[in-house]
Design a protein around this nucleic acid. Structure first.
Lengths: 71, 71
DNA sequence: ACTTAATGTCAAGTATATTTGTCATTTTGA
DNA sequence: TCAAAATGACAAATATACTTGACATTAAGT
């Protein structure tokens, strides 16, 4: 049951020059939580997604929305 | 500590002609969970937000993103 | 007025997001 | 090469999302 990595999040983080640890501290969560979200095997809460998006200067859609064909 | 109601979600649901119960069944969660998300006193998981958005033909930003002045 | 559907709310239980600690592996820079 | 920084991964504990059940209140239709 491999899940899809969140490459968009990782790219946005690296573009800002942040390590997982840096982003974790800014978002006030653990480094592991950031790692798990990037790995894709994770279901974070909405508030954390919003916080991360704001820190990285992105929106929810930018980081967490996948367009589907039928919609 | 009153939190802001998610009026955008409620509007999108009513536009589709769904009751909270209807949406809950489609999203495979309890009616209470939908009610709590609309009431704003809640922090749902990302996967549930995505599921709800897809059911209502909206995006994450449409339903759960608030633009801020500084970004 | 009456009935039913829809919603709000509370309390107790269950599932799972998140933390903490630790160690292994990879990457980066001197 | 070497050392340090960054990341991956695991297990056990804690915090909290979500469920279930139940009852009260409000809205809508007849």
């Amino acid at each position: 049951m491999e899940k899809k990595k969140n490459i968009k999040l990782k790219l946005a983080r690296v573009e800002k020059g942040y390590s997982q640890q840096d982003l974790a501290e800014l978002a006030e969560v653990s480094r592991q939580t950031i790692g798990l979200i990037e790995s894709g095997n994770y279901n974070p809460t909405l508030n954390l997604c919003i916080k991360i998006a704001r820190i990285l200067g992105k929106t929810l859609n930018d980081l967490f929305w996948e367009e589907t064909n039928e919609q």
